[in-house]
Computed example of a mutant assay.
Amino acid sequence: MTALRRLGATSLNVVGLLLAVVVLNFLLIQAAPGDPAQVIAGEMGGASPEIMAEIRTRYGLDRSVPEQLATYVGRVARGDLGYSFYFNEPVSRLILGQLPATAILVLTSLGFAVLAGAALGILSARRPHGLLSHAVSLVAIAGNAAPVFWTGLMLLVLFASVWPVLPVAGMSDVANPATGLAAILDVGRHLVLPALTLGIVYVAQYSRLMRTSMIDALQADYVRTARAKGLPERVVVGKHALRNALIPLVTMVGLQFGQLFAGAILVETVFAWPGLGRLTFESILRRDYPTLLGILFCSALLVITANIVTDLIYRLIDPRIRAGRTA
Protein backbone atom coordinates (compact mmCIF):
# COMPACT_ATOMS: atom_id res chain seq x y z
CA MET A 1 0.00 0.00 0.00
CA THR A 2 2.89 2.37 0.80
CA ALA A 3 4.37 1.73 -2.66
CA LEU A 4 1.00 2.45 -4.30
CA ARG A 5 0.63 5.71 -2.38
CA ARG A 6 4.15 6.72 -3.35
CA LEU A 7 3.43 5.87 -7.00
CA GLY A 8 0.20 7.89 -6.90
CA ALA A 9 1.93 10.89 -5.33
CA THR A 10 4.71 10.72 -7.91
CA SER A 11 2.18 10.56 -10.75
CA LEU A 12 0.32 13.60 -9.43
CA ASN A 13 3.58 15.52 -9.10
CA VAL A 14 4.58 14.64 -12.66
CA VAL A 15 1.19 15.70 -14.06
CA GLY A 16 1.26 18.97 -12.11
CA LEU A 17 4.81 19.71 -13.23
CA LEU A 18 4.03 19.00 -16.87
CA LEU A 19 0.95 21.23 -16.69
CA ALA A 20 3.05 24.05 -15.26
CA VAL A 21 5.67 23.52 -18.01
CA VAL A 22 3.00 23.62 -20.75
CA VAL A 23 1.41 26.82 -19.40
CA LEU A 24 4.68 28.67 -18.75
CA ASN A 25 6.19 27.72 -22.11
CA PHE A 26 3.05 28.83 -23.93
CA LEU A 27 2.97 32.20 -22.14
CA LEU A 28 6.68 32.80 -22.72
CA ILE A 29 6.35 32.01 -26.42
CA GLN A 30 3.35 34.33 -26.70
CA ALA A 31 5.35 37.12 -25.03
CA ALA A 32 8.15 36.81 -27.61
CA PRO A 33 8.16 39.48 -30.35
CA GLY A 34 7.07 38.59 -33.87
CA ASP A 35 3.95 37.43 -35.65
CA PRO A 36 3.81 33.82 -36.92
CA ALA A 37 1.30 34.87 -39.58
CA GLN A 38 3.86 37.31 -41.01
CA VAL A 39 6.45 34.51 -41.16
CA ILE A 40 4.02 32.18 -42.92
CA ALA A 41 3.09 34.94 -45.37
CA GLY A 42 6.78 35.69 -45.91
CA GLU A 43 7.39 32.08 -46.97
CA MET A 44 4.59 32.57 -49.54
CA GLY A 45 6.29 35.68 -50.89
CA GLY A 46 3.85 38.07 -49.22
CA ALA A 47 0.07 38.15 -48.79
CA SER A 48 -2.86 40.54 -48.87
CA PRO A 49 -4.73 41.55 -45.69
CA GLU A 50 -7.45 39.04 -46.59
CA ILE A 51 -4.93 36.21 -46.84
CA MET A 52 -3.31 37.30 -43.56
CA ALA A 53 -6.70 37.19 -41.84
CA GLU A 54 -7.35 33.72 -43.31
CA ILE A 55 -3.96 32.50 -42.03
CA ARG A 56 -4.70 33.77 -38.52
CA THR A 57 -8.13 32.13 -38.55
CA ARG A 58 -6.75 28.83 -39.87
CA TYR A 59 -4.12 28.54 -37.14
CA GLY A 60 -6.24 30.06 -34.36
CA LEU A 61 -4.03 33.14 -34.09
CA ASP A 62 -7.08 35.45 -34.15
CA ARG A 63 -8.25 34.22 -30.74
CA SER A 64 -7.30 35.73 -27.39
CA VAL A 65 -4.33 34.32 -25.49
CA PRO A 66 -6.49 32.63 -22.79
CA GLU A 67 -8.54 30.90 -25.52
CA GLN A 68 -5.41 29.75 -27.34
CA LEU A 69 -3.93 28.50 -24.06
CA ALA A 70 -7.07 26.54 -23.13
CA THR A 71 -7.20 24.98 -26.60
CA TYR A 72 -3.52 24.07 -26.50
CA VAL A 73 -3.67 22.51 -23.01
CA GLY A 74 -6.70 20.44 -24.09
CA ARG A 75 -4.84 19.18 -27.16
CA VAL A 76 -1.74 18.27 -25.19
CA ALA A 77 -3.89 16.37 -22.68
CA ARG A 78 -5.18 14.30 -25.62
CA GLY A 79 -1.66 13.70 -26.91
CA ASP A 80 -1.97 16.21 -29.77
CA LEU A 81 1.01 18.59 -29.96
CA GLY A 82 -0.47 20.59 -32.81
CA TYR A 83 0.46 21.25 -36.42
CA SER A 84 3.67 22.87 -37.60
CA PHE A 85 3.31 26.31 -39.21
CA TYR A 86 6.45 25.91 -41.29
CA PHE A 87 6.88 22.19 -41.97
CA ASN A 88 3.17 21.57 -42.61
CA GLU A 89 2.93 18.31 -40.72
CA PRO A 90 1.98 17.19 -37.20
CA VAL A 91 4.48 18.22 -34.54
CA SER A 92 4.45 14.77 -32.95
CA ARG A 93 5.55 13.22 -36.26
CA LEU A 94 8.34 15.77 -36.62
CA ILE A 95 9.62 15.10 -33.10
CA LEU A 96 9.43 11.32 -33.41
CA GLY A 97 11.33 11.54 -36.68
CA GLN A 98 14.20 13.55 -35.14
CA LEU A 99 14.23 12.08 -31.62
CA PRO A 100 16.24 8.89 -32.39
CA ALA A 101 19.20 10.88 -33.74
CA THR A 102 19.25 13.14 -30.68
CA ALA A 103 18.86 10.17 -28.33
CA ILE A 104 21.86 8.46 -29.95
CA LEU A 105 23.95 11.62 -29.61
CA VAL A 106 22.93 12.46 -26.04
CA LEU A 107 23.19 8.93 -24.64
CA THR A 108 26.56 8.32 -26.33
CA SER A 109 27.92 11.61 -25.00
CA LEU A 110 26.57 10.87 -21.54
CA GLY A 111 28.01 7.35 -21.49
CA PHE A 112 31.39 8.63 -22.64
CA ALA A 113 31.38 11.44 -20.07
CA VAL A 114 30.37 9.20 -17.14
CA LEU A 115 32.79 6.38 -17.93
CA ALA A 116 35.75 8.61 -18.76
CA GLY A 117 35.07 11.04 -15.91
CA ALA A 118 34.60 8.28 -13.32
CA ALA A 119 37.73 6.42 -14.47
CA LEU A 120 39.89 9.54 -14.37
CA GLY A 121 38.47 10.54 -10.99
CA ILE A 122 39.11 7.10 -9.45
CA LEU A 123 42.65 6.88 -10.81
CA SER A 124 43.57 10.36 -9.62
CA ALA A 125 41.99 9.77 -6.18
CA ARG A 126 44.28 6.80 -5.57
CA ARG A 127 47.20 9.25 -5.52
CA PRO A 128 45.78 12.71 -4.76
CA HIS A 129 49.14 14.44 -5.04
CA GLY A 130 50.43 12.51 -8.04
CA LEU A 131 51.01 13.67 -11.59
CA LEU A 132 47.75 12.16 -12.87
CA SER A 133 45.74 13.97 -10.20
CA HIS A 134 47.19 17.32 -11.22
CA ALA A 135 46.61 16.49 -14.89
CA VAL A 136 42.94 15.71 -14.18
CA SER A 137 42.57 19.06 -12.42
CA LEU A 138 44.05 20.87 -15.42
CA VAL A 139 41.78 18.96 -17.81
CA ALA A 140 38.78 19.86 -15.67
CA ILE A 141 39.67 23.57 -15.72
CA ALA A 142 40.25 23.54 -19.49
CA GLY A 143 37.08 21.56 -20.17
CA ASN A 144 34.91 23.90 -18.10
CA ALA A 145 36.45 26.97 -19.71
CA ALA A 146 35.86 25.84 -23.32
CA PRO A 147 32.33 26.49 -24.64
CA VAL A 148 30.66 23.62 -26.48
CA PHE A 149 30.34 25.52 -29.76
CA TRP A 150 34.03 26.55 -29.65
CA THR A 151 35.13 22.95 -29.07
CA GLY A 152 32.92 21.83 -31.95
CA LEU A 153 34.32 24.45 -34.31
CA MET A 154 37.92 23.56 -33.41
CA LEU A 155 37.27 19.86 -34.02
CA LEU A 156 35.49 20.76 -37.25
CA VAL A 157 38.51 22.72 -38.50
CA LEU A 158 40.94 20.01 -37.36
CA PHE A 159 39.18 17.07 -38.98
CA ALA A 160 37.89 18.93 -42.04
CA SER A 161 41.19 20.35 -43.27
CA VAL A 162 44.17 19.41 -41.11
CA TRP A 163 43.51 15.72 -40.43
CA PRO A 164 40.51 14.54 -42.50
CA VAL A 165 40.07 11.05 -41.09
CA LEU A 166 36.53 11.45 -39.73
CA PRO A 167 33.32 12.83 -41.29
CA VAL A 168 32.38 16.27 -40.02
CA ALA A 169 28.74 16.64 -41.12
CA GLY A 170 25.56 14.63 -41.17
CA MET A 171 24.64 11.28 -39.68
CA SER A 172 25.57 9.04 -42.61
CA ASP A 173 27.22 9.11 -46.01
CA VAL A 174 24.45 10.26 -48.34
CA ALA A 175 26.55 9.81 -51.48
CA ASN A 176 27.32 6.14 -50.70
CA PRO A 177 24.50 4.76 -48.55
CA ALA A 178 25.29 1.54 -46.70
CA THR A 179 23.14 -1.23 -45.25
CA GLY A 180 23.38 -3.64 -42.33
CA LEU A 181 26.54 -3.57 -40.25
CA ALA A 182 28.23 -1.15 -42.64
CA ALA A 183 25.43 1.38 -42.02
CA ILE A 184 25.86 1.08 -38.24
CA LEU A 185 29.61 1.61 -38.56
CA ASP A 186 29.00 4.60 -40.83
CA VAL A 187 26.70 6.21 -38.24
CA GLY A 188 29.33 5.47 -35.57
CA ARG A 189 32.02 7.28 -37.55
CA HIS A 190 29.77 10.32 -38.01
CA LEU A 191 28.90 10.20 -34.30
CA VAL A 192 32.47 10.46 -32.99
CA LEU A 193 32.99 14.21 -33.31
CA PRO A 194 29.53 15.39 -32.13
CA ALA A 195 29.59 13.02 -29.14
CA LEU A 196 33.15 14.03 -28.27
CA THR A 197 32.25 17.72 -28.48
CA LEU A 198 29.19 17.35 -26.27
CA GLY A 199 30.89 15.02 -23.79
CA ILE A 200 34.22 16.79 -23.20
CA VAL A 201 32.86 19.46 -20.86
CA TYR A 202 31.07 16.83 -18.76
CA VAL A 203 34.15 14.61 -18.60
CA ALA A 204 35.92 17.55 -17.01
CA GLN A 205 33.16 18.08 -14.44
CA TYR A 206 32.59 14.41 -13.61
CA SER A 207 36.30 13.63 -13.22
CA ARG A 208 36.74 16.47 -10.73
CA LEU A 209 33.61 15.49 -8.81
CA MET A 210 34.51 11.80 -8.78
CA ARG A 211 38.02 12.58 -7.61
CA THR A 212 36.73 14.56 -4.63
CA SER A 213 34.06 11.97 -3.74
CA MET A 214 36.50 9.09 -4.03
CA ILE A 215 39.09 10.79 -1.83
CA ASP A 216 36.44 11.32 0.86
CA ALA A 217 35.25 7.71 0.54
CA LEU A 218 38.77 6.27 0.78
CA GLN A 219 39.30 8.17 4.04
CA ALA A 220 36.08 6.91 5.63
CA ASP A 221 36.02 4.57 8.62
CA TYR A 222 34.35 1.68 6.80
CA VAL A 223 37.17 1.67 4.23
CA ARG A 224 39.77 1.55 6.99
CA THR A 225 37.84 -1.34 8.54
CA ALA A 226 37.75 -3.19 5.23
CA ARG A 227 41.49 -2.77 4.81
CA ALA A 228 42.08 -3.88 8.39
CA LYS A 229 40.21 -7.10 7.59
CA GLY A 230 42.78 -7.81 4.91
CA LEU A 231 40.49 -7.40 1.92
CA PRO A 232 42.22 -6.89 -1.46
CA GLU A 233 42.59 -3.28 -2.52
CA ARG A 234 40.46 -3.81 -5.64
CA VAL A 235 37.60 -5.05 -3.41
CA VAL A 236 38.02 -2.12 -1.02
CA VAL A 237 37.97 0.40 -3.86
CA GLY A 238 35.46 -1.28 -6.16
CA LYS A 239 32.91 -2.62 -3.68
CA HIS A 240 33.09 -0.38 -0.62
CA ALA A 241 34.40 3.05 -1.67
CA LEU A 242 33.11 3.24 -5.24
CA ARG A 243 29.42 2.66 -4.50
CA ASN A 244 29.32 5.55 -2.04
CA ALA A 245 31.44 7.81 -4.22
CA LEU A 246 29.08 7.28 -7.17
CA ILE A 247 26.10 8.91 -5.43
CA PRO A 248 27.22 12.55 -6.02
CA LEU A 249 28.06 11.66 -9.63
CA VAL A 250 24.63 10.12 -10.24
CA THR A 251 23.03 13.21 -8.69
CA MET A 252 24.98 15.50 -11.00
CA VAL A 253 24.12 13.42 -14.07
CA GLY A 254 20.41 13.60 -13.23
CA LEU A 255 20.54 17.36 -12.71
CA GLN A 256 22.49 18.00 -15.91
CA PHE A 257 20.41 15.81 -18.22
CA GLY A 258 18.48 18.86 -19.41
CA GLN A 259 21.72 20.71 -20.11
CA LEU A 260 22.75 17.90 -22.46
CA PHE A 261 19.73 18.65 -24.64
CA ALA A 262 20.55 22.35 -24.58
CA GLY A 263 24.12 21.59 -25.64
CA ALA A 264 22.82 19.26 -28.36
CA ILE A 265 21.20 22.25 -30.10
CA LEU A 266 24.62 23.84 -30.67
CA VAL A 267 26.40 20.58 -31.47
CA GLU A 268 23.79 19.44 -33.97
CA THR A 269 23.90 22.84 -35.66
CA VAL A 270 27.70 22.78 -35.96
CA PHE A 271 27.89 19.21 -37.29
CA ALA A 272 24.58 19.21 -39.24
CA TRP A 273 23.36 16.31 -37.10
CA PRO A 274 19.68 15.67 -38.01
CA GLY A 275 18.13 15.71 -34.53
CA LEU A 276 15.90 17.77 -32.25
CA GLY A 277 18.61 20.37 -31.82
CA ARG A 278 18.54 21.38 -35.47
CA LEU A 279 14.75 21.21 -35.46
CA THR A 280 14.70 23.56 -32.45
CA PHE A 281 17.08 25.98 -34.14
CA GLU A 282 14.99 26.06 -37.33
CA SER A 283 11.76 26.44 -35.34
CA ILE A 284 13.18 29.47 -33.51
CA LEU A 285 14.28 31.10 -36.77
CA ARG A 286 10.91 30.44 -38.41
CA ARG A 287 8.85 31.31 -35.31
CA ASP A 288 7.22 27.90 -35.63
CA TYR A 289 5.58 28.08 -32.20
CA PRO A 290 3.75 24.71 -32.22
CA THR A 291 6.94 22.83 -33.07
CA LEU A 292 8.97 24.75 -30.49
CA LEU A 293 6.34 24.16 -27.79
CA GLY A 294 6.23 20.46 -28.65
CA ILE A 295 10.00 20.16 -28.37
CA LEU A 296 10.02 21.97 -25.01
CA PHE A 297 7.24 19.71 -23.72
CA CYS A 298 9.05 16.54 -24.80
CA SER A 299 12.32 17.82 -23.33
CA ALA A 300 10.61 18.43 -19.98
CA LEU A 301 9.12 14.95 -20.11
CA LEU A 302 12.54 13.42 -20.79
CA VAL A 303 14.16 15.39 -17.94
CA ILE A 304 11.44 14.26 -15.51
CA THR A 305 11.95 10.67 -16.65
CA ALA A 306 15.70 11.04 -16.15
CA ASN A 307 15.13 12.25 -12.57
CA ILE A 308 12.90 9.24 -11.84
CA VAL A 309 15.55 6.91 -13.28
CA THR A 310 18.16 8.67 -11.14
CA ASP A 311 16.08 7.98 -8.05
CA LEU A 312 15.89 4.29 -8.98
CA ILE A 313 19.66 4.16 -9.51
CA TYR A 314 20.13 5.59 -6.00
CA ARG A 315 18.31 2.57 -4.61
CA LEU A 316 20.50 0.18 -6.59
CA ILE A 317 23.74 1.82 -5.53
CA ASP A 318 23.04 2.43 -1.84
CA PRO A 319 21.15 -0.27 0.13
CA ARG A 320 20.58 2.24 2.96
CA ILE A 321 18.17 4.17 0.71
CA ARG A 322 16.15 1.04 0.07
CA ALA A 323 16.10 0.22 3.77
CA GLY A 324 15.10 3.75 4.74
CA ARG A 325 12.21 3.86 2.28
CA THR A 326 11.02 0.42 3.29
CA ALA A 327 11.01 1.51 6.92
Rank of each mutant, 00 (worst) to 15 (best):
167 P>C: 13
161 S>N: 10
106 V>R: 04
102 T>Y: 04
164 P>I: 09
204 A>L: 07
185 L>E: 06
174 V>M: 14
119 A>K: 02
110 L>W: 05
97 G>W: 00
113 A>L: 08
95 I>T: 11
206 Y>M: 07
143 G>Y: 01
103 A>P: 09
117 G>S: 09
113 A>T: 07
175 A>L: 09
206 Y>A: 03
157 V>N: 11
184 I>L: 14
184 I>E: 14
164 P>S: 07
201 V>H: 09
111 G>D: 09
160 A>V: 12
139 V>C: 10
155 L>D: 09
159 F>V: 04
108 T>F: 00
171 M>D: 03
189 R>A: 15
158 L>I: 04
118 A>G: 01
130 G>K: 03
123 L>V: 04
164 P>Y: 01
135 A>D: 12
104 I>E: 15
161 S>M: 13
128 P>L: 03
123 L>W: 02
137 S>Y: 01
106 V>E: 04
193 L>E: 03
136 V>I: 01
129 H>F: 12
160 A>S: 15
140 A>Q: 00
154 M>G: 08
196 L>H: 06
107 L>A: 12
96 L>M: 14
147 P>S: 09
193 L>N: 02
198 L>N: 03
187 V>D: 03
108 T>K: 04
171 M>W: 02
193 L>F: 05
163 W>M: 14
124 S>I: 14
188 G>C: 13
98 Q>W: 00
107 L>N: 07
113 A>C: 11
119 A>W: 13
199 G>Q: 05
